[in-house]
């Protein structure tokens, strides 16, 4: 009972990882998404809070089934989350009515994992890209379509009248990016945009996303399972496990000093491309077992069943997001001001 109360209290407080800044474009607070599976209710996303500042790229990583893609879609209100707030440029999207939501949502756009299934096979490329412009009756549609096509590296004269099946996966992903840029959004949510692509094409798309971010001043939420890809593109990284946020912070901090045992295990699992690095992780805890069922998550900390450091407390109480201890005291003034690293763990690794 008391545990429940403390949890409640912590819910009411503002989550520690949310920043007090003027340039926050997107803020997600206590996001919960439930799915009905048969008669059961599965909490796919549980109390996730995060924010993204203008021009920032937030990487959202985790294994399959951790709810990272669901967070991306819930931000878009596709479908709307069960509870929680999604504040985009000061307005809460979850409280908007249909028409208002339709209009506000154009500031957020999304690209998906499977570029081929994200393009309507029966429409021409130029119509696909111009769709948003048509809907909102924007002026100079043709010029805008040409511009974004050129920006993503498609030849407007050659590609405009063709249909998606005449393009390779990488080209299709370029079309998707062009489509999402046509309406000049503030935020681009990328849901595993490169995981369906060949290794050699993946780099093209990652570079393109970086270029587009510069050119159109985009803020990005980049959902992916590949930690190396996320590191490459993100300013900030959030790690999810079984619907919960475990750790969030500056990319370099997370990768250099992972504080959550799960983050550490994830990093240790990455196959190293350098065959000489034979220090592998004998000294690091290796993750055992499989993901528990999201329908029946473990009590307390959801990671405890696979955590090498789990103790009795972890089963009793759910850890709350807190600033990673230690870094503040040892750091110089400079480091302190730039400090941005939060972890939800009773016994963070420092």
């Amino acid at each position: 009972m008391t545990d429940m109360n403390t949890e409640r209290q912590s819910d009411n407080q503002k989550p520690a990882q949310l920043r007090e800044r003027d340039d926050i474009v997107l803020r997600v607070e206590n996001l919960v998404v439930n799915f009905a599976v048969g008669k059961q209710t599965v909490q796919a996303v549980s109390n996730v809070s995060l924010d993204v500042a203008r021009g920032e790229t937030l990487g959202l990583v985790g294994e399959s089934g951790c709810g990272k893609s669901t967070v991306g879609r819930a931000i878009m209100q596709l479908p709307s989350p069960t509870s929680g707030e999604v504040i985009f440029k000061g307005q809460d999207l979850t409280r908007m009515s249909g028409e208002q939501l339709r209009q506000t949502r154009t500031g957020l756009q999304m690209i998906f994992q499977d570029p081929i299934s994200s393009l309507n096979p029966r429409r021409k490329v130029k119509d696909i890209i111009a769709e948003g412009l048509h809907i909102w009756r924007r002026p100079n549609q043709e010029a805008r379509v040409r511009e974004v096509m050129e920006a993503v590296g498609l030849d407007p004269d050659a590609a405009a009248d063709r249909r998606p099946h005449q393009f390779s996966g990488g080209q299709c992903q370029r079309i998707c990016i062009a489509r999402s840029l046509a309406l000049d959004p503030d935020v681009l949510i990328c849901d595993e945009p490169v995981s369906a692509l060949d290794v050699s094409v993946q780099a093209q798309i990652l570079n393109l996303l970086e270029d587009m971010k510069q050119r159109y001043q985009l803020t990005m939420v980049f959902v992916a399972h590949n930690l190396a890809v996320v590191k490459n593109i993100s300013d900030r990284v959030a790690v999810m496990y079984l619907g919960k946020l475990c750790e969030i912070g500056d990319t370099e901090a997370i990768y250099a000093r992972p504080a959550h045992p799960y983050t550490r295990a994830l990093l240790a699992s990455i196959p190293d491309i350098d065959p000489d690095s034979n220090l592998p992780p004998d000294h690091l805890p290796l993750l055992q077992g499989d993901l528990p069922s999201p329908a029946n998550p473990p009590s307390g900390c959801r990671f405890r069943t696979r955590c090498p450091h789990a103790q009795a407390l972890c089963a009793d109480r759910e850890p709350v997001m807190q600033a990673v201890p230690g870094e503040l005291t040892q750091g110089s003034l400079e480091q302190r001001s730039g400090k941005d690293h939060f972890v939800a763990c009773h016994f963070p690794l420092v």
Binding site: D198, Q204, L206, N207, A228, N232
Partner: peptide, 25 residues
């Protein structure tokens, strides 16, 4: 070489420009 260079590396800092292979297989 191109394949090797086009893979994002965990050891590289963020926003390292990747050396993409132009074209497609």
């Amino acid at each position: 070489e191109a394949l090797f260079n086009s893979i994002p590396r965990i050891s590289d800092p963020s926003h390292t420009r990747l050396q993409a292979i132009p074209g497609r297989p």
